[in-house]
Amino acid sequence: MRRFGEVTALAGIDLAVRPGEMLTLLGPSGSGKTTLLKVIAGFEIPDEGEVYLGSRNVTLAPPAKRDIGMVFQNYALFPHMTVAENVAFPLQMRKVPRAECERRVREALQLVDLPAHGDRLPRQLSGGQQQRVALARAVVFGPSLLLLDEPFGALDRKLREQMQLEVRRLQRRLGLTAVFVTHDQEEALVLSDRIAVMDAGRIAQLGTPQEIYRLPANRFVAGFIGESNLFRAKVVAADSAEIEGGTRVRLPAGAPGAGADIGLLLRPERATQLSAGEVADFTIACKVSEIVYLGETIKYRLQADGGLDVIVRWPFRGSGATLAVGDRVTVGWDRDDMHWIHWS
């Protein structure tokens, strides 16, 4: 537990990273993900609790003795040293003999595709290249854990996607165990083996990207990851619930008993437009109230006749009829397209 004045920045964190996996700490700013990273790296000492690296208790070990490679938000390359000197720094700190040091620096720069840039200064490199140098510097000494603190924030979208794949490839190739911090859910879904969604100093959910997206554990995760329709509902019978406004729906399997206050989550792409004769577990007639073109998909805000507001997203097929504001449309979904969570 780490307290800053009255605020408890982390509480009840219980997290184990598996060997060779990329685990992402995902959360909004202030959720404690950066503090947790600092605790792991050794820049903050927890008021309570312990940190293990393998079987070694490093709770009180200084950062230098933890054998953790770290890539910082702004890369933190040393501006007064060349690229090669930057990469050699951790080896020098470990008193690696000169010849071996040079060899490993060469290899590391090769690994990140910058074999000819050793003599440059960091400021002479592009953002993406600086990122690679930071990566090379963080892995050159064979750390047992790699920490990545929002490393792609400063890159433009295209470069960011490219670097994400590259980091992932490198991490797999070297078999590195990595902890990655980001507030960008898309990035987390792309990169991670597992994601720990953080909220107010706690882990709100830990799971694979699929689990997190499809089966969010609570309202926070449901709201934070992806877009969703979340209907508040009351369970009225063994397998049916009443959504606010009086609409009845059949519940997915495993729902709690009558009287429970639940939320029903529907991803916008899971609802389908029904033509006459098609059936679904749940069908509603709506009117289109808003349209947003998103490129490959179009997002519609629909106003159901019962008063319910539903957002749907369907692929955009260029040709064919598209809907216009005011059009009437029937949408439906099966009960397993929905996912229930406890409301509170």
């Binding site: 537990m1 000492i45 047992s144």
Partner: peptide, 24 residues
């Protein structure tokens, strides 16, 4: 809690527990 794996190349952070590193 998935347990603390004993192999190198893993990290785990747990809280709370008792130890105090006053000096550190």
């Amino acid at each position: 809690m998935t347990g603390i794996p004993d192999s190198p190349g893993t990290a785990s952070a747990r809280a709370p527990a008792g130890r105090r590193g006053w000096w550190r």
